[in-house]
Design a protein around this nucleic acid. Structure first.
Lengths: 152, 152
DNA sequence: GTTGAAATCTTAACTCT
DNA sequence: AGAGTTAAGATTTCAAC
């Protein structure tokens, strides 16, 4: 499939604001509405676009306490890894989980209401998972940057 | 403002797929199309929704190498902090930057093409920022979980 | 919150490079 | 093959109830 500079610009615009109409995009890209429409359909079908979502304001919904948790497993056998990853997927407070290189095995992004909710999360949800060796939490003091768009 | 369980469900749906029509949402919520429309407008105006975006597939656009970087500043005076945060905001490879508690001062999420691109990023972009004391990189081996929707 | 109707947008067949 | 024109159908938006 062809993926030219117009497609790149289009993806950049859609990453910024997916509610723009094809008419608005056609002006910005200097194309007809149909050309924009077909390029978007092409990008969707080719798998360039995974979906369209609304970004909700964390403060407004009382989920403004963000913590990154490092996790070390007691052992690294395949069954331990699979079991841990399955369990972590069930925890709604864990928005992201990465298997990473370095001293710790996993890096988790946890979003809760406040410190009290984090305590509950740690005691009742996270540390009840088997195979966890140790954890280390980093509290987010300030979100300096949070882009949702990847520069193309 | 009132924020009831229907609004919660609505936000949950929009976080999952913002391209659903008001008609589809009206069926799921058992409301009229206009009621859905007005609730969405209300949520937008009240600041519950920060925006609507397209999620781009990282593999497809050749940006599938994700690294978390810990950063320690040489000093923590306000001018050093402000200067660092300003510089980091300019770097497009840094999608996220958090001021965190713990041993390191900052946690960065970096997205590049591959290890070679990461090397270039480190040498030419990141470590040219003043005031950086030390860095420690964690390479993402596997993305175990990456939810974009916060459970309400 | 609902109904209904106008404005706007999406979508697809057709046409022209 | 890719882009433009047109027109039908769907959706958004906004009255009035």
């Amino acid at each position: 499939m062809i993926f030219d500079s117009t497609d790149k610009k289009l993806l950049a615009y859609l990453q910024q604001d997916s509610k723009q109409t094809n008419k608005e995009l056609s002006n910005k890209l200097e194309l007809s509405v149909t050309a924009v429409y077909e390029r978007i359909k092409k990008l969707e079908k080719a798998g360039f676009i995974d979906g369209y979502i609304a970004i909700v304001n964390k403060e407004k919904i009382d989920r403004n306490f963000v913590v990154f948790c490092h996790i070390k497993l007691v052992k690294h056998s395949q069954d331990f890894v699979i079991s841990f990853e399955k369990e972590v997927n069930k925890i709604s407070e864990v928005l992201e989980c990465y298997h990473v290189s370095g001293e710790y095995d996993y890096l988790l992004k946890v979003i809760v209401k406040d410190m009290a909710a984090f305590r509950t999360f740690m005691v009742e949800r996270l540390t009840t998972i088997n195979h966890i060796g140790s954890t280390q939490s980093m509290f987010v003091i300030n979100e300096v940057k949070h882009d949702t768009a990847i520069t193309l």
